[in-house]
Amino acid sequence: MATETTTVTTQLYGSLPPFPDNLIHAPIAEISSKKLLEKDPETATAVLQACQTYGFFYLDVSDSDQGCDLLEEADQLYGLSKETLALPFEEKDKYDFLKTKSFFGYKPAGTVKTTDKDKRPDSTEFFNIGKDCLFDVAPSSPYPGVIQNARPLLQKFCRGAHEMGMDVLRTLARASGEHEEIFVDRNLFHKPSGDHIRLTLKPASTASTSGVGLASHTDFGSVTILFNWLGGLQIESRTPGRIGEWEYVKPIPGKAIINLGDAMVHFSNGSMKSAKHRVVPSPGAQADMERVSVVYFVRPTHHSLMKPVGKFATGDNRTKVGGKFSDQIDDKVYTAREWLAMRYVQLNAGAGKD
């Protein structure tokens, strides 16, 4: 399975222009999924260190059966993304999540986020497909037929990506000296939540689409698992002398890109980081290609309380603004559902966040 999957992935990357060699890359850790799943202590330490500094790391999913399954499914979803987002706008517009008042559905390009000081419209469109919709945890939002027909594939990817996210959370718990399920218990698959798959497309860069792909932001949830094939993702540097500058995260065959979201900042009392990132036009010859990405967002179950857990409830490691978490709304402890709803309102109804 591993050899076949790697071959498909290599062929897909091989059909795209190479990433330029002369750009500054973020020096994020590369973690083996095999060692992570085997609960290797050194790997656990490396994952925790990555999540306390950059908040991002590469996960080599080509060296474990569980990872290879995800890689194969992501390659298939690459095709589904292109097929879905090639639908006529009139068809996609029927599923606009602002019009249907659901976070699951279609987001067109052209969103202006309140976090972008330059108020630039983005050039990225996507479909959010809810885990609760796929597994009948809650009534489903409407989706076009091409997504409905791919339900078995989407379910497999959703379940596998969520479980890989849980393995990341278990690893962080062990490395922090906590019981293994302390973060998992707040991100349960079978409970209602905002977990979702995102199928994303940014058009080739032209004079009219050469601006921001997605404006600078942090993710709402607990863990983000990203598969992409072209460059454009940048994160804020943590390198001395470059703090706050933007560095590219180069796509690497066989590797997913993992980052933490704001929920883990709350659960860990600020000891783990949710890093700012953005999407800009793909560099070099890659700018002439459509940029596709497939993402899974692990978000806390709706009933989870947005507060530090376990030993993190003592002490104060938080990044604060006026005595609060930098993303905190007020002094009340909210459920994840309440907190996310208010975050959406803060950030222009959530359109384009994450």
Rank of each mutant, 00 (worst) to 15 (best):
T3S: 14
T10D: 15
Q11T: 12
L16V: 03
P20A: 00
I31T: 09
K34D: 11
A46T: 10
F57H: 04
V61C: 10
G67N: 03
D69Y: 15
D75Y: 04
Q76Y: 05
Q76T: 01
E91L: 00
T100I: 13
F103P: 15
R120Y: 03
P121E: 09
S123C: 11
T124K: 14
F126G: 02
G130C: 12
D136H: 12
A138G: 08
S141F: 03
P144Q: 00
N149P: 01
P152T: 06
Q155A: 05
F157E: 03
R159Q: 08
R170S: 15
S176C: 01
H179I: 08
F183P: 04
V184W: 05
L188S: 13
K191F: 08
K191I: 06
R198S: 14
L199M: 00
L201M: 06
P203L: 10
A204Y: 10
S205W: 01
A207G: 12
S208A: 08
A215N: 13
S222D: 11
L233V: 08
E247D: 14
Y248A: 07
P251G: 00
P251K: 00
I252Y: 06
A256S: 13
I257H: 02
N269V: 02
G270V: 05
M272L: 15
G284L: 01
Q286E: 07
D288E: 14
M289Y: 12
G310D: 04
K311N: 12
A313S: 13
K324C: 07
S326C: 11
D330T: 04
W339T: 02
L340K: 10
R343Q: 14
L347I: 11
N348A: 11
